[in-house]
Amino acid sequence: MGAILPTPPIGLTPLSAYAAEYDWLFFGMCLLSLCFMVPIAVAIVYFAVKYHKDSKADRSERISRRSRLILESSWAGIPFLLTLGVFVWAGKMYVEWATPPKGALEIAVIGKQWMWKFQHPGGQREINTLHVPVGRPVKLVMTSQDVIHSLFLPALRIKMDVIPGRYTHLWFTATKTGTFRLECAEYCGTDHSRMGGSLIVMTSADYQSWLAHAGTAISLAAAGAEVYRKNGCSGCHGANSTVHAPTLGGLFGTMVRTADGREVLADEGYIRDCITLPDKNRVAGFPPIMPDFSGTISEADLIKLIAYIRSLPPGARP
């Protein structure tokens, strides 16, 4: 729907089809609000003049019970039905906002007091500035190292809280190149108002050359292999291990049956919980012997580890 709507003429330039559609919904709601406000204002002024205590206006008429009922139910019902249209349209956009498309470019985000750390799949890291390609869906996978933050991209009309202990998502497809504001929207302490930076949208070619320029030798998944080795994960999960531990290759994206009989999707949050809260979703048929790594693995290493586990082919037991 967003694609067929032109850009509204005033305000902050929308940076995506979603943002353009958002503006139309916003202005639509403004118009609807005026439709409610004007009659009330007119009625108040009209009544205040016509029925001023000194006026000789006729006050004799009485409203019948029936017409009073019709009047009251119509001024309760009609505005409600009209606003339900806004509820539905906004709900549709909310679902869109919450549902990242498959195959989006995934960028890891860690919020901490008071900076944003971004890491691209190739391992390129940046702070407070986020480079993304134009025209391609980008999915931010976000967590916080301390308190709750909220990543806010006003030009895209989107934000999402960044919460310690779990991963949240934010996705967008920018349609224009340029530099735009990036802000923290959830109060997070002393320098909250300085916890911001820029979203830089580049052409695909510029983005590639930026990646190459900023490139580290090692991708996120490869860095994860190092974390995997250092923490001795293969001691139990490896092919040569005698310990009964789940195979990690091909795990990501599958449904896992837990020991207490639930079906859980093995996404980033699930893998994170398995490492930091091993008892929460223990896999059915495995003993409770996974050690608790909370406090010993940093948020950045967790993200690398997840990228590594994701990259393993089905059946692999490194």
Binding site: Y22, L25, F26, M29, S33, F36, M37, I40, T83, V86, F87, W89, A90, G91, K92, M93, Y94, E96, W97, S150, F152, P154, R157, I158, K159, A185, E186
Partner: peptide
């Protein structure tokens, strides 16, 4: 109150609130 109430509908509408909340 009418202005306050109507602006309440903006922030009660999920998709509209995503941009407006916390601002």
């Amino acid at each position: 109150f009418v202005i306050g109430g109507l602006s309440g509908l903006f922030v009660a509408a999920t998709g509209l609130d995503v941009h407006l909340t916390r601002t």
